[in-house]
Amino acid sequence: MTPRCAVLDDYQGVALSLADWSPLGGTVEVRTLREPFRSEDEVVAAIGDCEIVVAMRERTPFPASLLTRLPRLRLLITSGMRNAAIDLAAAARHGITVCGTASNTEPPVELTWALILGLARNVATESTAMQAGGPWQSTLGADLHGRTLGLLGLGKIGSRVARIGLAFGMDVVAWSRNLTAERAAEVGVRAAATKEELLEAADYVSVHLVLGDRTRGLLGADELRRMRPTSYLVNTSRAAIVDQEALLRALRENWIAGAGLDVFDQEPLPAGHPFRTLPNVLALPHLGYVTRRNYEGYFQQAVEDITAFLAGSPVRQLN
C-alpha cells in the first residue's frame, strides 16, 4: 500500500507550490490540510491513516496522548530543528522517527523591528486613518535614536536585533541568566546585572528567549510594573514567557505604553480576544518565521527527509 503523507496547517495553501515534491513520485500519497485543529479527536480523524506527517512549527501539538492514537505514524517532520510541542520520548516509544529542517533566523529579526518601528511611529493608527479619510497626522512618534533597547536573550536572534538597534543609534543592554559581560561585549552591547535593571532602564523591551521551565512566566505583574509608562514590550518568541493576564492588565491600566505581539497562548487567537482590539497593541498572527525563503527551505527539506527515511537513512533526526 502506498504510504500516505499529510502536510498540516498549510494556512496559505502554499506547501505544494514552494517545493519540488516530484522525487516522491508515486511512492507517497501527499495531501495538505489548511485549517487548524480544535481537538485531538479532529487530528486523529484527519491523519489517522497516515504514515508520514509534516508539521508546521508548533501549530499542532503532538503530546504522548495524541501519538498513542496514531498507530500508523512512522515519520513526523517539523519545520525547524526544535519543537517543544512534540513529545520526543513518546515518539521514540512508539517507534516514530522525528526529523526537522533548517530555519533561517533573519525573518524573526526583521519582524521584531517591524513591530518596534510600528509601535514607535504609530504606523497602524496612521495608516488606518489614511485609508478611512481620517485626520492628517494625529499622533506623535516615539524616537529610537538615543533611546535604550533592552533585550531579554542575546542568542542568534537577539544578537542580530542588537546590532540593528546599534545602527539606529540606540543604547542596547541585554540580560539572560547565563549572559556574561564578555559575550555582551562581543556583540557591542552592555550586560545588565539583573532582569529588573534592564526593565527599569529600557524604552523598548524585546523578548528573545527559548521557552522552558526557567523562562515560563519570566515577566509577570511585578516585572511589568518595573517598566516605564512610556516603554514598549515586544514579544516574537513565545507567549508563555510573559504572564498573559498580567500583560493584559498592564496594557489596560497603562503600566506601559504598548506592546507588539506576534505570539499568543492560544493560536489562532479567538476573534473576540482583547489583544485583537486593545488600542495600544500592535498584534500580528505569528508571522515571525513566515517568509517565502523559510517556507521553501522547510518544504524542500521535508521532501528530502521523507526520501531519506524511505531509503532507510533518515536525516536531521530530533530523537
Rank of each mutant, 00 (worst) to 15 (best):
E58T: 06
D243E: 06
A191L: 01
A192C: 10
A45M: 08
N319Q: 08
G133T: 02
L310P: 02
E186Y: 01
G25W: 02
M81Y: 14
E35P: 00
I164S: 09
A283E: 06
L151Y: 07
A46H: 05
T97K: 00
L144Y: 01
R276G: 12
L166Y: 07
T101I: 04
D243P: 00
L318I: 08
A114R: 15
T2G: 02
G217K: 11
R72I: 01
L199I: 04
V54S: 02
P36I: 10
E196F: 10
L111S: 05
D305M: 02
V109F: 02
L70A: 10
D262K: 02
S22A: 14
G158S: 11
G297N: 14
T277Q: 11
L269T: 07
G158F: 03
T148G: 10
V98R: 00
A174P: 04
R226D: 10
L166M: 13
N83A: 15
E245P: 15
A302Y: 02
Y11G: 07
V242T: 10
S103C: 13
A90E: 04
L209C: 10
D9L: 11
N104L: 13
N294E: 14
G80P: 06
P3G: 08
E182Y: 08
L218K: 12
Y298Q: 04
G95S: 07
S79K: 03
R293K: 13
A6I: 00
D171I: 12
G297H: 08
G95A: 05
L18K: 05
K195F: 00
F299L: 10
A184H: 02
Y232Q: 01
R4Y: 04
A19H: 00
A191W: 03
